[in-house]
Design a protein around this nucleic acid. Sequence first.
DNA 1: CGATGTGTTGACCGGGTTCAAACAATGTGG
DNA 2: CCACATTGTTTGAACCCGGTCAACACATCG
Lengths: 242, 242
Amino acid sequence: MNASSIAPQEIQAWRDNLVLVQQLLPFTRRVVHAGDAIYEGGSPFAYLNLINSGQFKTVNFTADGRGQVVGLHFRGDWLGFDGIAEGRYGCDAIALDTGEVWSVRYADVLAACAGSPELMRLMHAAMSRQIARGCDSLLSLGTLPADARVADFIKDWAQSLASRGLRTDQITLHMTRAEIGNYLGMTLETVSRALRRLAQCGVIRFDEKGRRDLTIPSLSALDGFIRSALEQGGGTRLPVAA
Amino acid sequence: MNASSIAPQEIQAWRDNLVLVQQLLPFTRRVVHAGDAIYEGGSPFAYLNLINSGQFKTVNFTADGRGQVVGLHFRGDWLGFDGIAEGRYGCDAIALDTGEVWSVRYADVLAACAGSPELMRLMHAAMSRQIARGCDSLLSLGTLPADARVADFIKDWAQSLASRGLRTDQITLHMTRAEIGNYLGMTLETVSRALRRLAQCGVIRFDEKGRRDLTIPSLSALDGFIRSALEQGGGTRLPVAA
DNA sequence: CGATGTGTTGACCGGGTTCAAACAATGTGG
DNA sequence: CCACATTGTTTGAACCCGGTCAACACATCG
């Protein structure tokens, strides 16, 4: 599951989305800035949004005010799948920095899919990928201690960039400690302490610029940190005895 | 979000899957028993499985032996979406009791979707629903204390049955405490204690038959328990200051 | 009968939360 | 330019929820 094991056809999956949409679908470009909402939970569903650039989070809100970051999304990802079934979006989609999304009417997508098996397959694959990513998030939340969860988070982030052809050694987290903590199911203080420990182990390094820019000397070192945190941290936390 | 607020068209969504598949797709019926694997993570993807009866869990495994129950599935749900993108299943799908699934070649689904907008829409909706359910799981894991998480789990279970026209006052958990705990990100002991506390509050009641059969006097009482656990348990655990 | 798997309960302890204080970064207006 | 407010980050100290370990009850099954 490391970056080098990404299947060849996967490396370019994000690009296929952009190319095919450009060829087959009418869409409107929409430039957004940090904090902008692409859509909000509860509002009527009509559009899917394909990310052309920028980074985004999806946040799930409840009536009683609880909020949970449930996903991070990058170039080539779709925003809005959660709205298809109910006809209303289930989450807020928020831009983490400035970027551009391509908005397409879902009705147009359906029509185009009927005429293009390739596009239909691509949409299925995109939804499938989001389902699989959700499973991985649950795995991380349920089985890893706090420090390892933060390490896994950074590893995922870097791999997401790597699979899109972006540089992974030097990354910028466009999220506050509070947002990261929310996403990982812990408090902002724990995130801060975990990052300090990761830096002390040399598995990440903070840039001079600020506390959100960091360099990753080695992805496999991150993996090593996670594994060591698992075995020395009591060993079998939530294993399933087959 | 209570049981009575389910939209009319949602109540029968599970049935549409079964009806449409029966009309449009060649499939093979497959009877399974508790513990049987419908498919296993890592094996090549070729079939989707529509649940006609029974209850199922999906389990995500890692190379280092960690396992996490990531989803529960009932009549009308599809199993196998997570395999479309990579061409390999990402999870194990395990039967929790005796049931029947309809196995359909994914290639046939694609072909049939091209000729039936209704079926295509239905597949999208099914995937969308699974994405949304994943988001809800993350919300529960990230924002609720242990007791409330167990209460929310039972509420979800009951609502899943209710939306399929099954009785919700009397339910049987076809899972061990360890499985439930794994699903909810806690230990089996905590599950046991949480259930006892729920029973003491009268929000659930154990049947004479065994420790897995329980009755739910009132769904709204479960909601009340969750809300009270939130406000008296320190109040704002992971809220997002808008 | 013992063996095995499951569930319950108690006592202890530790990782992570909570509370608090101080610091850093970035505006904002006079 | 500085005073000031605001937001984000770091660090410390105390507390507590939930994990860990252990013992026991209770089934089912050979």
